[in-house]
Amino acid sequence: MTLQAIGVVAAGLIGLGVYGTLSQQSIVMLMMGLELIINGVLLATVGFWSLTTGGLPEGQLLAIVAMAVMAVEMAIGFALVVAVFRRREVDMTDRLGSMKH
């Protein structure tokens, strides 16, 4: 359980997340990709905190900020899906030609 191993696993999660974000057509699936990216970031943050800072509390704080980012991303994402669907009955990125209301 070295820092390098954790870094590689986190990189794998982030890579999977990038793949999902770029490849998925459905907005909700795309958000899953974003979640995976933040998942990797969380793991890396906690890894750095645990193995290189000797338990500095600010490291955990950074992980909490990442969690808050994740919550914001989810909530705003779902609200956007609902708003777009109400307006245009669309839940796929490809069918969103413009960002105008």
């Binding site: 390098q4 990189a11 793949y19 490849s23 890396a44």
Partner: peptide
């Protein structure tokens, strides 16, 4: 998307492996 995912993985892994912390 596959290429981007792999490049991200490779780049970040290389970065993680080269870290000297």
């Amino acid at each position: 998307a596959i290429v981007a995912g792999l490049v991200t993985f490779a780049g970040l892994s290389a970065f993680a492996l080269s870290l000297d912390l």
